[in-house]
């Protein structure tokens, strides 16, 4: 810690107060990710084992999967990784504004990915009639991708909390209610906009693009639409410029640890995309 003051610049890859020079939080996160490798390794194994000898009557994945949709969400998750890496890069240089923008972009990408997953699950259950209980493929598929989705959701929440944290005023004395309301506004904005976008897509799918379709969606979802606008507005209001904050280069390690988690969720998806989806098409 003292070296920070002495050098002026912060060396983000080494911490001189620890025996190895690796910051404690980073080491903790890497050890956790090593553990998480076993976690997802076991889960993916379960799915693949049940794909080796499918029982009679098991659904055929090829007839169920929607590769264009999955490719799109894979692409989105890759882009979220890019934004996350840029966020870490920005805060390491002390560029708070750029970090906040990148964090928001990561959150949006994460939300789009989750939206795609909701869409996909909905489609599989109601259109393709594959549920978590009616076949072993449904059981392992929904458990595996659902667990991954839960990891993404936790990541989005963590990103949101970190984003809100970056507004903590330097003077202190901010009431905790402000922080809480900011978090609530952000979460509401993400959830409501997901709901609106999904409704629009479902309506377009069902009735095709026309004025009547859009009118119908607006009629049915006007509450969610108004809510989205209010939530985004509130979030923007809480995020207004308001003096110096308690968030700078010394917090880069927190953002970086969160980033490690986020990228890990991304690489798990890289494996799932190949092992669960693409291999079925050979």
């Amino acid at each position: 810690m003292t070296s920070h003051a002495a050098n002026g610049a912060i060396d983000h890859h080494h911490d001189h107060t620890t025996s190895t020079g690796i910051p404690n939080k980073k080491l903790l996160m890497w050890a956790f990710l090593a553990s998480d490798c076993m976690f997802f390794g076991t889960l993916i194994s379960t799915h693949l084992i049940y794909r080796l000898h499918p029982p009679p009557g098991n659904p055929v994945p090829r007839q169920i999967f929607d590769i264009p949709l999955t490719s799109f969400s894979t692409f989105i998750l890759l882009m979220s990784s890019l934004m996350m890496a840029l966020a870490v890069n920005a805060i390491q240089k002390g560029n708070l504004k750029s970090m906040r923008f990148s964090l928001l972009a990561t959150i949006v990408c994460g939300a789009i990915f989750l939206g795609c997953q909701v869409f996909e699950f909905n489609n599989f259950v109601f259109e393709k009639h594959m549920t978590i209980t009616n076949s072993i493929l449904g059981t392992t598929f929904f458990t595996l991708t659902g667990t991954h989705g839960t990891h993404v959701a936790i990541g989005v929440l963590w990103l949101g909390l970190m984003y809100v944290r970056s507004f903590k005023p330097a003077t202190g004395g901010q009431p905790w209610t402000t922080t809480l309301l900011h978090v609530v506004a952000l979460v509401a904005a993400v959830l409501l906009s997901m709901k609106v976008v999904l409704s629009v897509i479902w309506a377009l799918e069902a009735h095709g693009l026309s004025g009547a379709t859009l009118g119908g969606v607006v009629g049915a979802q006007w509450l969610a639409i108004v809510g989205t606008v209010i939530a985004i507005g509130a979030e923007r209001w809480f995020a207004r410029p308001a003096g110096p904050v308690q968030f700078d280069q010394s917090n880069a390690i927190d953002v970086e640890s969160m980033g490690l988690y986020w990228h890990f969720v991304d690489i798990v998806w890289i494996v799932i995309f190949t092992a669960v989806y693409l291999l079925e098409y050979l």
Binding site: T46, I49, Y50, P54, P55, N58, I132, T133, N134, S135, I136, G138, T139, T140, T143
Partner: peptide
């Protein structure tokens, strides 16, 4: 939730 991981009648092992 009634999944089939170890439910033999539905292909579990």
């Amino acid at each position: 939730f009634g999944t089939n991981f170890f439910e033999v009648s539905n292909g579990g092992m």
